[in-house]
Design a protein around this nucleic acid. Structure first.
Lengths: 99, 99
DNA sequence: TTGACAGGCAAGTGAATACTTGCATATAAT
DNA sequence: ATTATATGCAAGTATTCACTTGCCTGTCAA
């Protein structure tokens, strides 16, 4: 499983995650249209397809094929690693060590 | 303020954050030594200095000059944006919408 | 004040990667 | 069957970015 940090490093990929959070299970074409319409992204279909590959390798989305469509589902679970690795100090979690 | 996602995209920068979490307020030289000793990183002082710049621009570390030393302090607060932007579903927060 | 130590600046190099272009495959509709 | 739709593959380009090298500035100690 590739690294989630690299996956998050491109704005296009972050916007894709945003879109899937707003409406889960979109196809490649739907995602393309929404990115272009809502954010004025001037990206080819292939570019977005490659971004989806990166996100899938990082475990941040899963896919499901149905005929000629391929649907994409967000999975935020891998992001938990970030919060665990560098915990937010003194912000509500009583288990945190306060300096 | 530059973006935290780019800041996290390099393993060296993530290791620096780990080191500061273990021992806060280190100087550039201390960080260099610990990265080389503990992780076998073969990086020049300048390379690490540039990583520290990126982390500072992202607000993930702050610095304090004292004479010829410059001390580095971790600040995990900006990471909260990640958890808020793509919340973990169905994992303890009762406000989450469950599909 | 001389030398060692801690750090900064800036230009250059090489590798990673985002994006494109062109063609191919598979499914669905007419 | 033919055509349109939805996606996949692969090679090429161009830009970003990590890292190095060489030199410079500032601080402290002898």
């Amino acid at each position: 499983m590739a690294d989630i940090y690299h996956a998050l490093s491109a704005e296009a990929r972050r916007l894709i995650l945003d879109e899937l959070l707003e409406r889960n299970g979109q196809s490649l074409y739907e995602i393309c249209n929404r990115l272009i319409m809502k954010h004025g992204m001037d990206l080819s279909r292939q570019a977005i397809s490659q971004h989806l590959e990166v996100l899938e390798e990082a475990g941040l989305i899963s896919t499901e094929r149905d005929g000629r469509y391929k649907f994409h589902y967000i999975n935020t679970a891998p992001l938990q690693e970030i919060a665990e690795r560098w915990p937010l100090k003194g912000q509500g979690d009583p288990h945190d060590d306060l300096d």
